[in-house]
């Protein structure tokens, strides 16, 4: 069966009724790849791509709330630098027209570029079910293990929110000039209280934050010495593995390199009082 609900409420009804028997699809950029590989063979779909409410971006109480159906193309126009650059690094334009932030969070790949940017921005994700209504949870708590998340079988991802005004930076190492899967990626954001968060992709089973490094930075003014300390510390906070895309040795070293590079950019750009654009 192919269900194409026009409202989120209808989608929740279907999800509640069908649970894991139905595959939720939006842009299809993960689901259909898996189908084409024969890894999954779904016969029942809930297509949430027609739900207009999921496509909205709005400001509310110092937050920016993005519907789960917001595409990477949409995010590529946003002023949050890390999220914008991360989104524009996903696939080519056609993929960005299809792929959504909700899908990225649902797939929960350790290489999910959007997830890494959002983690650094202390994002929260809103999960909804027919039975229990909406709940917000920190994105960091949402990721549990490799492709395992806090999303219940009757829940759908509704939205994700971030604080309105962080300064942020992003860097992804890939093997070529475009359409890259991360070898390693790093996002850093800093809010007005000088609270700085770091997040990494492809350094473990899930998109990863570095709480000890963040703690070391909290409330401090960035100096080259502090940046060096943090860059050393992060290598102990990540647990990359060897795979055919790259080795743990390289990835660990790159976490440190990218941390240093991005923090240095934040430090050097600070006097310019940069809006994130």
């Amino acid at each position: 069966m192919f269900h194409q609900p026009m409202t989120f409420e209808h989608a929740l009804d279907l999800r509640s009724e069908l649970g894991t028997d139905a595959t939720v699809i939006n842009g299809g950029t993960d689901v259909v790849v898996a189908m084409n590989h024969g890894a999954i063979k779904p016969t029942t779909f809930i297509d949430v791509s027609r739900i207009k409410a999921l496509r909205g971006i709005e400001k509310q109480n110092g937050h920016l709330i993005m519907g789960a159906g917001v595409t990477f193309a949409d995010l590529g126009k946003m002023h949050f630098r890390a999220l914008r650059e991360a989104s524009l690094s996903v696939g080519g334009p056609a993929i960005r027209n299809m792929g959504t932030i909700g899908g990225n969070i649902a797939t929960a790949s350790p290489a999910g570029d959007g997830c890494v940017a959002l983690l650094a921005m202390n994002a929260e994700v809103q999960l909804s079910s027919k039975a229990r209504g909406d709940r917000w949870m920190p994105l960091v708590d949402y990721f549990i293990d490799y492709r395992k998340t806090a999303l219940a079988d009757d829940e759908l991802i509704k939205a994700v929110r971030v604080h309105n005004n962080p300064r942020s930076r992003w860097y992804k190492i890939g093997k070529r000039g475009a359409v890259n899967i991360s070898l390693v990626c790093c996002a850093i954001s800093q809010n007005e209280n000088n609270k700085t968060e770091l997040a990494f992709g492809c350094v473990g089973p899930i998109p990863k934050v570095a709480p000890k490094a963040s703690a070391l930075l909290t409330g401090e003014t960035l100096t080259p010495e502090l940046i060096d300390d943090v860059a050393n510390l992060v290598t102990h906070e990540v647990a990359p593995i060897d795979d055919q895309r790259g080795t743990a040795t390289y990835r660990r070293a790159m976490c440190s390199t990218l941390t240093k590079r991005l923090l240095t950019q934040l430090m050097e750009d600070a006097p310019k009082g940069d809006a994130d654009a």
Partner: peptide, 18 residues
């Protein structure tokens, strides 16, 4: 690549039902 409602998409990853 084809256009759906004027936007480029990859037709290998969109279901015909969509």
């Amino acid at each position: 690549t084809v256009l759906v409602d004027g936007e480029t998409i990859n037709s290998c990853l969109m279901l015909a039902a969509q």
